[in-house]
């Protein structure tokens, strides 16, 4: 089972948080194709962004 170390998870979350809408969309598409722990972080970030927009 693939996993990130806590430091790596923190760094990936930070990159996703800082990404512009276009960049984030690219990351989303990438992780949706690839799967793994990155996809979970993308989903969390997507939810956070949707809440802000609401």
């Amino acid at each position: 089972m693939e996993a990130y170390s806590p430091e790596m998870a923190q760094w990936v979350a930070k990159v996703l948080r800082k990404a512009s809408p276009k960049e984030f969309d690219n990351w989303r598409k990438y992780y949706e194709q690839r799967g793994g722990p990155g996809l979970e972080l993308v989903k969390a970030e997507l939810q956070a962004r949707q809440q802000v927009n609401v």
Binding site: E2, A3, Y4, S5, M8, W11, V12, V15, W27, Y30, Y31, R34, G36, P37, G38
Partner: peptide, 13 residues
């Protein structure tokens, strides 16, 4: 080897 997931962001990091 470090048992870290291998994807674009981890490789870049």
């Amino acid at each position: 080897q470090q048992k870290e997931a291998v994807d674009l962001l981890t490789v870049v990091q």
